[in-house]
Design a protein around this nucleic acid. Structure first.
Lengths: 142, 142
DNA sequence: TATTGTTATACTCTATAACTATA
DNA sequence: TATAGTTATAGAGTATAACAATA
């Protein structure tokens, strides 16, 4: 009985993600943004969350570790934290105009990097890949 | 100028990898294998490396952290370390018959899990996805 | 009593440098 | 001198639990 040993999904995804991260790092460094800070800006930009608890769930960042990111982002004037009038335990996190600008610039740079990374795929291959990736992520949104 | 904000590759890959890992963990726990131990067994099984330095490069595991994994695997009788006669600084790492068995059993369980994870894709979607993934990883083997 | 945000503590992981034995 | 493997140590990242404010 021969084991074909097709490479595992975990191994493939790990390698590809490592490469994406490697290329992304200098782009974020240029903006002075730690990776998690950028992830948080992106989640806010996408409207995925308003309170810190929602932000934690949306990004997968532990709520206790989220705080140092928000502290730094707030200090830099990229986000604001304001108490929710409806339930004053909550704090609504919002992007400032500056935060939106910084995030958009980073996103553009990252988008260009991704174009380059995917350039080896034919248009149809690429469409199929991205479509399947989005499908899988949405199907299994833990 | 409207920013379409297509989700980024990094975010998508992170989420999917998180889900794969979450499903893989109990399978490895059942075999008593820490994640890295399994990665190392797999690399050896694939013939990607023979010395520890090569193993480190093949898996992306730091050479100093590799050692505790090899110590444990050797203690359990799943791998052997023997000095290379040609250059006695090197140590050749090999799978034992037991190591091969353990690794094959885990691989089978993980393979079944992946089948389930990908079940939502049509056969053509799935083929396209896997093909593109392998292409991208091979193209950018850092 | 339960929940949001926060702080403190302990634990794990990781990176660095130093050591040995070979070459 | 340089390299493979090993060990030790310090720093960063992480998880847990406890706390204050609010419901």
């Amino acid at each position: 009985m021969i084991d074909m040993d097709r490479p595992e999904l975990g191994a493939l995804l790990t390698r590809l993600l490592r490469e994406v991260t490697r290329r992304e790092q200098p782009l974020l460094d240029r903006a002075g943004l730690p990776m998690w800070d950028y992830v948080i800006l992106s989640a806010l930009s996408g409207g995925d969350a308003s309170t810190q608890a929602e932000l934690s769930a949306a990004t997968g960042r532990d709520k206790t570790r989220l705080i140092e990111n928000l502290d730094r982002l707030e200090r830099r004037g990229l986000v604001t934290r304001t108490p929710d009038p409806a339930d004053r335990r909550n704090r609504i996190v919002s992007l400032t105009a500056d935060g939106r600008r910084v995030r958009r610039r980073c996103h553009a740079a990252i988008h260009a990097m991704e174009e380059e990374l995917l350039a080896g795929l034919s248009p149809s291959e690429r469409a199929a890949f991205e479509h399947a990736l989005v499908r899988l992520v949405n199907d299994h949104d833990s």
